[in-house]
Every structure is written in structure tokens, then in C-alpha cells.
Write a protein that binds this DNA or RNA. Structure first.
Lengths: 262, 262
DNA sequence: GCAGGACGGG
DNA sequence: CCCGTCCTGC
């Protein structure tokens, strides 16, 4: 068995205690973090190594974005794709040593406020990012798991109100289509939805701005775990730790985890 | 008996727990705070009222400076002097109801880095502030206690190194002379030095920048309690709570307290 | 070394 | 609402 988790942590330095709590209580074999918001030399490498996560692949930058994959089992860093070609730290790819398993940790751009590439360059960059990921996915020929904050909630049951979010970045048809092209480019299996099928409610993010997140439950599923078909067939368990949204000084995202029989 | 305390708190919102701890453990009748760093409607009035300090005179502004006097015994706000005439919240004067006692809570400007009014306007403003306080003091004709952060350490034993601080703002001869003029203008009695006579070491502030503040002990006496002569004769006790500098997330100043037989 | 504020970003 | 960074002030 191998368990892999993904969590947009929204500053790993500020939320190191939460990461430690999650690792202590749930002990995944591998944890993929997004939005670490620090440079590599500022990453709390030692604190996580002391908890057994001594194998680490960190791709950071100053202030924004940044991803890190930490592991209890040996991993080898393979790639750092720059799908925007602008130097932003949004991906790190590793191989799980001796298991014929590749793990891609990605943080897709949020895309700004206005869902129109003519008036909002960030929205265009997000679509371009997804198109380039699709082109890359087309060439993937190894058992691969790609996880992270995709910043798109594709299904109606991935958002608290399909109707009210149709023109809100993360749930617009043009983004969903781009994400679909990316998924079909490799035949990725959406593990989350294998285990929590549509039309069941499935969210991984609740905005800080909406108070009483639990009562109002205005969530979205922005975080995903997608696997190559053969690998997806080996997924045995999947979970969403909603309670982490209630921890002290929480991230606005919660961790997802999948257990594989590999 | 009536006990009066003064404390530069360096943001009362951030350090409300420390104020509460001080009030719970030492229970002065009146506490004068400086550098509350908030507007009046942001002052934690209710939390302090719940501890019995329901009588409050608050003079605040956005972000900087600001003073507040909170009391367990009835007080009446009398004045808000603007000795710089620039709108900064640096003083509030109250009367202790039924005791013929006036209490002035003041935060003198720090004065910038360079002790030269030609090149540093803030230094000039500080000297002007002290001169205007002197003019005001000349007209004080009631039993008055003036306390607060005067931002001047007048005596050699008020600083960790007289020689090394002679050209450092807070201990320059020109500031000491201005403070002396202010003191003589009313015949104020320096209560701190009545109880801890020169040349005994007496500090109330240790910079955040100097690490190991306790070991290196690079302190200064910037906070003072001065009384009209007749009132000073009724002072029965005086204390400096140095241990407060070691509390969690401390202010760089510590509280002073004086007990009066009034 | 630590405050608060203003900014850009989510 | 909550990050980081940069700025000012002490």
C-alpha cells in the first residue's frame, strides 16, 4: 500500500503546525503541498524530516506559489515544468523509487477575476497553462498520478451553486472544457469522483471571505487527484479531510488522500 | 490608598492578554497606557470593563501613538492637549472623582534618529513638545500626577552606558535640559527616583533589537511618574515590573506603579 | 525586532 | 478574509 495526499497549504511557514498535525494524525506516505509561498531555503525541511518525511522535492519562489512533495519513502525528483514559461514555481515531478510510479504535483494559476482572456491576461494564462498541460499529458506513457490545486471545479456537484458560478472563474464552461481536454489527452481517471460519484456533493475549498463556511457550505472542488488508467485501478481508498477547514488558523483548502495497492 | 500604573503597551489590541494578566495579578486602581496604536472604537473597552476597569478615557488615532486611561474608580476626562498642534493623539488628562487629584497621561514623541533639529524635523518637534509642556506645567495649580513615556532618560543611571548614549536620541544633553525645564516649571517630583535614588540602576525599556535583553541589560528609563510636591509627599510605594519584559510577546516597555495615601 | 498600513494576490 | 512583501516608525 502507498498513500498519497495533496493539500494547498497557503503558506507552509505559517501553517507548519497544521502540516505536522496532519502528518502525525494521518501519516500518508507522500504529501504534496501547493502554495508553500516561500523559497526553497525557507521551507521547513528539517521539521518535516524529523517526522520521517526526509525525502523532499521542493520548487519554491519568493512570496507566491511554490510546490513541495515530501515523502517517507524514497523519491527522486525528475522534472520541473514551467507550463507558462514565466518562471513561476508551479510544478514538481518525482518518481517513487522502485515502484514504477510517477507523481506530478501541480498548482494551476487561479486566473484572476474576469473570465475573459481579452480583458484579463491572467485568465488567458490559466487557459494556456491547461492547454500546455494537455499537450504534455498526451506524451505521458508511464503510470502517473497528477495531483494538486487545479483551480477548476468541473462538475455541477463540485460547486455549491452551479447556476450562480457559471460566470465565476473556476467553474466557467471554457475552463471546464480546457480541463476536459487535459483529462482526455492521457485518459486520466478522476479518482475523487470514482470514490464520491457525481451528483454527490464534493468540495475541497471554502473561501475565507464567506464566514460560517460550515453552515453556508459555499465550497468548490478545486483540488484533484488524477491517475493513469492502470494506476487508477489500483486505488483502494480516498478521503477528504473536511475537518481540517476547522483547525486553528486553517488553510482555505483541505487535504485529499488516496491509498494505492502498489 | 490609590495605586496608579503606567505602561507603554505597543499596540493594545495585540497585547490585550498581557494587559489582562497585569491587571489580574497587580490590580492597580488606574492604568495609563501609551502607544495603544488604534482608534477609540477599536480599543478593547469591554474586555477591560469586564475586569472592573469600567471608567475609561481613550484618545486614539489610526495606526500610531494613542493613549488610554482605564480605572476601577470613577474618573472624568478633562483635557486632550495637542502640544504639537498636529493632531497626534499623545495626551489625555483626567480627574479622579472626589479625590482632588488630576492625572495626565502623555506620550512624548520619540524624536527620530539624528539629535539635530536642523537635519531631523522630528527631533525639533520633540524639543518643541517638551517646551510647550513646560509652558503648560507653569500654569498647573492643582495636585497633579503626570505619567507616561517621556522618551527621555535624564540621569546617568537611567541608561546602560551614559558615555555611549550621549549622542543617542533620548539621552542627549539638549533633551535632558528640555526635560529639566519642564520639571522645574511646576516643581514636579520624580517619584521613580525618590524610591530608587540615583546612582542606582533604573530602566523601564529594553529595545527589541538588542537580543538577550536580560543578560546584556542595555536598558533606559524612558517612562516616568512625576507628581506635584504635595502629592509626591503622599507616595507610599513604587515599583517597576521588570519581569513583564519576559512575558510572551512582550512590549519593549514594562509597567511602573505608585501607591498614594490619598 | 517588532508594530501598523498599503499593496497585489488568492 | 487572509497571505506575502515593502514601507514607515520606534
Amino acid at each position: 500500500m502507498l498513500s498519497v495526499a495533496t493539500w494547498n497549504i497557503n503558506s507552509v511557514r505559517l501553517r507548519l503546525p497544521l502540516v505536522q498535525r496532519y502528518l502525525a494524525e494521518h501519516a500518508p506516505d507522500i504529501l504534496c503541498l501547493q502554495e508553500i509561498k516561500c523559497q526553497e531555503d525557507q521551507f521547513p525541511a528539517q521539521a518535516l524530516a524529523e517526522m520521517g518525511y526526509e525525502h523532499q522535492a521542493i520548487c519554491g519562489q519568493k512570496g507566491y506559489h511554490g510546490v513541495a512533495t515530501v515523502s517517507r519513502v524514497p523519491i527522486r525528483e525528475i522534472t520541473r515544468h514551467d507550463w507558462q514559461d514565466n518562471g513561476e514555481a508551479r510544478h514538481v515531478g518525482i518518481e517513487v523509487v522502485g515502484r514504477d510510479l510517477f507523481l506530478e504535483n501541480v498548482y494551476v494559476p487561479a486566473g484572476g477575476d474576469v473570465p475573459d482572456r481579452e480583458v484579463n491576461v491572467k485568465f488567458g494564462q490559466k487557459l494556456d497553462f491547461l492547454e500546455r498541460m494537455a499537450r504534455w499529458a498526451d506524451s505521458v506513457d508511464k503510470p502517473t498520478l497528477i495531483v494538486g490545486d487545479f483551480n477548476v471545479a468541473p462538475l455541477e456537484s463540485d460547486v455549491w451553486s452551479h447556476k450562480q458560478l457559471l460566470k465565476v472563474v473556476s467553474h466557467t464552461p471554457i475552463e471546464v472544457e480546457a480541463l476536459d481536454r487535459f483529462r482526455h489527452a492521457h485518459g486520466w481517471v478522476d479518482i475523487g469522483r470514482e470514490h464520491v460519484p457525481h451528483p454527490e456533493r464534493y468540495y475541497s475549498w471554502w473561501s475565507y471571505r464567506s464566514p460560517d463556511w460550515k453552515k453556508n457550505d459555499r465550497g468548490r472542488r478545486l483540488d484533484h487527484m488524477w491517475a493513469s488508467p492502470a494506476l487508477a485501478a489500483q486505488a483502494r481508498s480516498h478521503g477528504v479531510l473536511e475537518e481540517a477547514r476547522n483547525w486553528e488558523k486553517p488553510s482555505d483548502h483541505v487535504p485529499l488522500v488516496t491509498g494505492f495497492d502498489v
